[in-house]
Amino acid sequence: MAADIKQLEKKYVGKEVEFRLLRFAPDKDRAPYFQSFRIKLSQGMTVLDALMRIKETQDPTLSYRKSCRMGICGSCAMQVNGFPKLTCQTQVTELNTDKPIEVRPLANFPILRDLVPDLRNFLKAHESIKPYVIREDAEELDHPTGEFYQSPKELEKYLQFAYCIKCGACLAACPTNATDHEFLGPQALAAAYRYVADSRDQGLEQRLEAVDGPNGIFRCHYAGACSEACPKGVDPSLGIQLLKREILKYRVGAAHKKPAPLAVTPKGLKRREGIPLPPEKTVGQ
């Protein structure tokens, strides 16, 4: 392994690579165009590192979004050689460095400037599905007296969908979004399933307003491109199909959901010696 890395370093470090970046300044350009930059690769360089190098050394006006640089914030998703990727997680050596590497803003989004997509509608779609636990016992939510019980099996039902970082890569890959800009999109729909599948939630009916409209879930044809594009291993197309099932079950009156009850604190148990006390309660005081 170490030998492999050494060999890779020998092959790539110091190699000059061409990046073709999409440029667009709405105040002066009529249409986007490509501009080429050449930089020397350094060890472990990601596409985002390359963009930062270009900005620092060649063109300080280059615009892109980034924050955490470790695949968690979801800000730096872009089209790299035509595929939506988190640029902070994409090593330049993974790509064909003998040809120019093309970087554009995420597809299916309007461009704000250079590599920065306009995420407003995307985030509005996410907001429209009410991405939080909804329950009939609102009093308990507002003034909690304890925690809701949820078994590991119940958690498994939605856990993978909770890993979404809202990077927008799935929407950029979605063929329905490419031709129908009103379509709610895989991220919002998978997020809706994340809450519908949560045993603590009772909000399916409230989410139908956004999800079950003419531009909602039934426009998805299960192309599966979203699941392939997701850098966090979420499977939005699976979530969408499961949500369709939940909605149809609800429509035919077969959706019976008892929300998770409050967890009962076991009584009569004694603390073993040497185990520290739990932190102070933050709810139910």
Binding site: T176, T179, D180, E182, P214
Partner: peptide, 15 residues
């Protein structure tokens, strides 16, 4: 209807 909605870039009123 699905084809028109999905392939024609039209807004909600026209839909």
């Amino acid at each position: 209807r699905s084809l028109i909605f999905e392939l024609s870039f039209i807004g909600l009123v026209l839909r």
